[in-house]
Design a protein around this nucleic acid. Sequence first.
DNA 1: AAACTTGTCAACCGCGCATGC
DNA 2: AGCATGCGCGGTTGACAAGTT
Length: 462
Amino acid sequence: MGRPPCCNKDNMKKGPWTPEEDILLVTYIQEHGPGTWGNVPVQTGLMRCSKSCRLRWTNYLRPGIKRGKFSPHEETAIIHLQALLGNKWAAIASYLPERTDNDIKNFWNTHLEKKLKMFQTCSQQQQPIIPKGQWERRLQTDLHMAKKALSDALSLDTKPLPIPDLEPSNGYHSYAMPTQKSTTYAANADNISRLLAKWMTSSLKSGGSSASISSNIVSPFSLDSPDVSCSQVVSVKENNILFLEENTPNLETSQVPLSLIEKWLFDEGIGQESQDLIEMPHQHITADLNPCVLDPRSLSVGPGIIADCVSLVLRLDLAFIALEITDVFGFCPSDGGYGGSDGGGGGGGFRFEVCFYPSNLKYASIYYNHLHFLEEVFHAGEASSFGVEFDGLTLKEKENEVGHHFWCEAFRELIIEPKALKTMVKEITLEKISEEDERIAWNVLIKCGAPGHLGCFMCDYV
DNA sequence: AAACTTGTCAACCGCGCATGC
DNA sequence: AGCATGCGCGGTTGACAAGTT
């Protein structure tokens, strides 16, 4: 039983593709679309196995592939994502839709890996040995850095954080592609791409265009930053990014630096402007949260806490939101489950179900563990007890109605009053500051001790 | 100018999961 | 349910070009 063999590899041609073969393949895909690769050799007469055809299409002929130099921000995104995801090139490529996983992999293997090794060697010379007893702090720092890496990679922020450029730099790096060979080949590909123009147009019209996150990723790291040294890197401070927004050119309103949150929280005189940022409309933000395009199989980040945080959040494509919770309140939102389960919630962590409610996510998270406080603030006791009705519906009915975990949904609705919101968040934050010695669940929390840091357990301040 | 080394990247290989029969 | 193929992935190879000695 089973399917018939796709091709007989013994008679298959190997090696570089000729322009004629490319045209045959492109013509076929123009007519039939990509996929059903097993039919390609049969129907085109190509003496290539189906796998080879698929690779040729996905890595070279497919429309929308960007060739040539990797820009500094592409480079930085790759560095951060690789640090976070490991060699999950397909997952990394999903954040750089114009680049193939093969391109990214090659770029990493030929350029970035060496470059980072050099950088690490340089850094280690200045990195003091961690004293005994300081491992917890280091653990927190590493976790923080890992999350920061994701945040930076996904963020729109343009502020540079220096990583030394280990090569002479005058704009883009010198290791870009255009050799004589690739130029010639690109010319062939260009010809083919013209053949594809019509197909591309129809594809785009039919909604086939995928939102390009990469077009908006402007990393705060720049490998091209001039005049930087290893010592500068070691002492660099975080640059928190709170919101990621796709397809929205207005950067000024699409990102909120942490300092603004802090300012808003503790500065009684802060104006309505930052208030507006806190209260980004629910629909506005939700619209920018693309469903995660990553293959779940690619998301096994690694063992431990970081893996828990990152993989869960990535599945929601909401990493920045979890980071936001952590950055503002100084503990890691990773004790819990995913997908709206309503168990647990204790132990000091947050649950990711709150991620379904981006606009008030951090507050919803807090709410989950601070229901009693919510009651006090909003006098909403009737919504906080099981068995009572809400809007004439039981808890279960209400959950079914909203299609989400009811408590978070209820909270989202309740928290529209800015002053009360601020009061609550402030109180909770102060409460957390007072818990600096508390050890919660799996995670040993070490307060950083930095002056002015708001109970920042995760801060890399030393 | 030739030999050698290094860099680049398209393509291949093998593996594992998904899916059709 | 079990087998075989489809498909996608990460790792590796090898041809070619550029650079160095």
